[in-house]
Design a protein around this nucleic acid. Structure first.
Lengths: 345, 345
DNA sequence: CTGTTAGCGCGTTCAC
DNA sequence: GTGAACGCGCTAACAG
């Protein structure tokens, strides 16, 4: 320890401030936490002492004493996928004004990975925890449930949440997108998905596709699996061309896949939407830029993150009547990749 | 508090374990921290007690007592931009095996935002801190310097680091890309940049472009500013077409801009690389997918993050002879968007 | 090798 | 309204 021994902005503690302001340590703590039971005069004296000494409260010690750390934990599959990272971005923006910090972990798309991160995080006593999706190991559910803190499951509006779920219906969105392809005159709509992980969001989209097919009395098994990458989308397109020549519409489970397929169409001179109507999912920025622009479903991950922050704040404040199931909805974005007839000028 | 009052996996403390195993609290702490000074026999007894009671150490209390939190702080401009998020992903992967957690913050591309996050983070006593780039407010530098913890500045290999810098030379990479465009036979190479923030990486790329121009005795002022988005790239391309009809090569400061421009070329039927040789920067996944595939510079943000983790671990362990300046290098990725002559078959 | 004790810095009772 | 004292759960230093 010592003067500059990793003590943030100095080794000055609350006792030093108290001495300097000629008050008790308790009083300093009170002004720090905005207690009303302090005279304006003494408050000023304390504030002055804080300024002069450059005092910075030790939030670790506060966390121990108050049994409240001001930290929320967040777990997403990977940080590199913007759709998940932007949820965190929204949470950061919503929580920063309240002095709440976020610790981040990645599950690597695996239940086991998630379990280990949850375990490690709970030992740090966060005030709340956010996890992506609704599929977790039994032990993870148990850990979370008995943690005693608010648990927010995000992105997919599933039944049977651990505590609170904030998201949208992947099933409904996928069904709507599929139905839209059929409504635009397509007769044979395929679906491209992936299955490298136990991911309820992707699984629900597949079910949405199948439901839309069955509602029209059409076969619901025109789907193939690939890897979730641009190249995976291109590969899937080639497979469809080879295997199902009758297909005239494709619903890709992510924009990444759809964009990869669009590029493959460009390379092969296949006209979109004339030959294939194509839609994706997520409304990544690239969806509006690619040629032709991509029809897709928009979620608004940042605002979802902000909503999550709101709920966490309310729960931490102790408000009991917070919704346990919040639907942030989705929006179908219609662009050229899925219109029929000649392209707009 | 109480039995299930937000105490993680239960309210059992180290004293409970000690009692259950019939040893002292210190001994439990020793086995927890892997001290060699424990008999295998007592170690087992303690481990058994931990198991039976479902004890989970309170890392907040440990942090206070040990003056070592096992947390590292990381600040990036925004979470939604993959290039930055993936650095964090690499850090997570490198630090997780050592039980170290990452708290994340975003500066919003502003020095003031960064300063506030740094301030908030230091109060939580992280064991180390990572910040993006080398441009910071004077107060941020001062806070960081006097924090007493390892400070890693990342991404841009600048001079005058606060403590340690890990990255690559944006200047060199940009110069090399520009020179490559000239070497492929282009005579008028423009540069598209943006300036919405005090970003040393982008500024250094501009300087690299200008240096390459001057080395050939060519004008170094064919650059324009736009916003860093697909649409921004498209807009810049239109501006160049209108203003500088002689331009036959464009170095876009990010892949996002370059891809936006490539899409605009597709819309307008402009042949790339025949009309324009184009290159970007970052080697985002989209760069290999777009048509034509994009020549760009690759950094490897994930492995850079792992390198940062390594350095942090070494510094935390107290190793004094850790490099203060680590060049992770870059790689020019040659693809079709910048070759001359007929495109490959 | 092990038990005991004194802090780590702060919030929160209590009396005053 | 304010100060003093105790405790949050753990590590580290000290005896033994």
């Amino acid at each position: 320890m010592g003067i500059a021994g990793k003590n943030g902005a100095g080794a000055v503690r609350i006792a030093d401030v108290a001495r300097h302001a000629d008050v008790g340590a308790g009083t300093v703590s009170r002004v720090l936490n905005g207690s009303p039971n302090v005279t304006a005069q003494t408050r000023e004296r304390v504030m002055a002492a804080i300024q002069e000494l450059g005092y910075v409260p030790n939030l670790v010690a506060r966390g121990l004493a108050a049994n409240r750390t001001g930290v929320v934990a967040a777990i997403i599959p990977v940080l590199g996928y913007a759709q998940h990272s932007e949820v965190i971005q929204g949470m950061l923006e919503g929580l920063k004004p309240y002095g709440i910090t976020v610790m981040i972990g990645s599950s690597g798309y695996s239940e086991e990975g998630e379990e280990r991160v949850v375990e490690a995080f709970l030992a740090r006593r966060p005030d709340a925890i956010y996890v992506t999706g609704g599929r977790h190991s039994a032990r993870t559910r148990e850990l979370l449930k008995s943690s005693g803190i608010p648990v927010i499951e995000g992105s997919n509006l599933h039944d049977n949440p651990i505590d609170t779920v904030i998201g949208y219906s992947n099933f409904d969105a996928a069904r709507k997108l599929t139905a839209r392809l059929f409504a635009s005159g397509r007769k044979h709509v395929a679906h491209v998905t992936f299955s490298t992980d136990p991911n309820d969001r992707i699984a629900d989209r597949l079910e949405g596709y199948r439901a839309a097919c069955r509602e029209l009395g059409l076969p619901d098994d025109l789907f193939i699996e690939t890897t979730n990458s641009f190249e995976g989308g291109a590969k899937a397109l080639r497979t469809i061309l080879d295997s199902w020549p009758e297909v005239d519409g494709i619903f890709f489970v992510t924009d990444v896949l759809a964009v990869g397929a669009l590029h493959e169409c460009q390379r092969r001179g296949i006209a979109v939407p004339e030959h294939f109507a194509i839609c994706g999912f997520d409304d990544l920025p690239i969806a509006a830029s690619v040629v032709p622009a991509l029809t897709t479903a928009r979620i608004g991950p940042v605002s979802m993150g902000r909503k999550i922050a709101e709920v966490i704040l309310a729960r931490i404040k102790g408000e009991a009547d917070v919704d346990k199931r919040i639907d942030v909805g989705f929006q179908i974005i219609e662009r050229e990749s899925a219109v029929l007839g000649p392209k707009p000028p």
